[in-house]
């Protein structure tokens, strides 16, 4: 297909596009199965970094949602015009005080930092990764499950092998450094004291896999 129509002039394929800001978050919610599908209702307040309002002239309270509202779709995130939810801005949601005929679709290091390090995404990686440890399947089988869940396709043999090497390295890391392992579990929003040693290592490891999948270009792209 690519050879026959390399520039898309024949409309043989549609362009891949990065999904919109709200959906970046929705994808991680859906893949970790944390998504609450309730429709409608007032805006919600998922976690956001402290001090977002330092830039604005007034201090707005951000009552962080607990329970179901924490995991609602991105379009329900409460919008403070003076200081929008940072994830939305970083992924090009428009300002809400003017009309928007087309969203910009940028691709920046700030997006990379958000997907990799935002506690809201780490929490979802923790949930997704933990779920993948709940089988006795081989690493390869788990990797396949993780890919099919996150990217809706089977990984190639090379992709499985690459991720298997990553799994092995992560497992070694967390097995040899319990202190780091605990810190990582806390960063993922998990309670390290709730698991035995083996469980802790596995959750730490597979959450790393989830984090990696969330950060692939393919994850936030409509193919």
């Amino acid at each position: 297909m690519t050879a026959a129509d390399p520039t898309g002039r024949l409309l043989a394929t549609q362009r891949r596009v990065r999904v919109e800001a709200e959906i970046v978050r929705d994808l991680a919610l859906a893949v970790s199965d944390a998504l609450v599908r309730r429709i409608g209702g007032p805006g919600v307040h998922p976690p956001q970094p402290a001090g977002i309002y330092a830039f604005t002239q007034r201090n707005v309270a951000w009552p962080e949602s607990r329970g179901a509202d924490r995991y609602r779709r991105g379009l329900y995130v409460f919008f403070v015009r003076g200081a929008p939810y940072p994830l939305l801005t970083t992924f090009d949601a428009p300002k809400f005080e003017t009309t928007c005929t087309r969203r910009v679709r940028s691709n920046t290091p700030l997006q990379a930092l958000t997907l990799a390090n935002d506690p809201a995404f780490l929490e979802l990686a923790g949930i997704a990764g933990s779920a993948w440890t709940e089988t006795t399947a081989s690493d390869e089988a788990r990797i396949e499950t993780a890919w099919r869940t996150a990217l809706a396709r089977r990984p190639s043999a090379a992709e499985v092998a690459r991720f298997a090497r990553f799994v092995a390295a992560e497992r070694t890391l967390w097995a040899t450094d319990p202190e780091a392992s605990s810190a990582w579990l806390v960063a993922l929003g998990l309670d390290p004291t709730a698991f035995d040693e083996r469980q802790a290592i596995e959750r730490a490891t597979w959450s790393s896999v989830a984090r990696a999948l969330f950060n692939l270009d393919e994850f936030i792209t409509r193919e």
Partner: peptide, 27 residues
Amino acid sequence: LHLASPAGRRRDDERRFVDLLNESNAE
């Protein structure tokens, strides 16, 4: 925002993470 890596992960660990992403993305 989110400049710091999560707790528990050192620079080497993050290098491995970014290498995994880059190789997968390149493919």
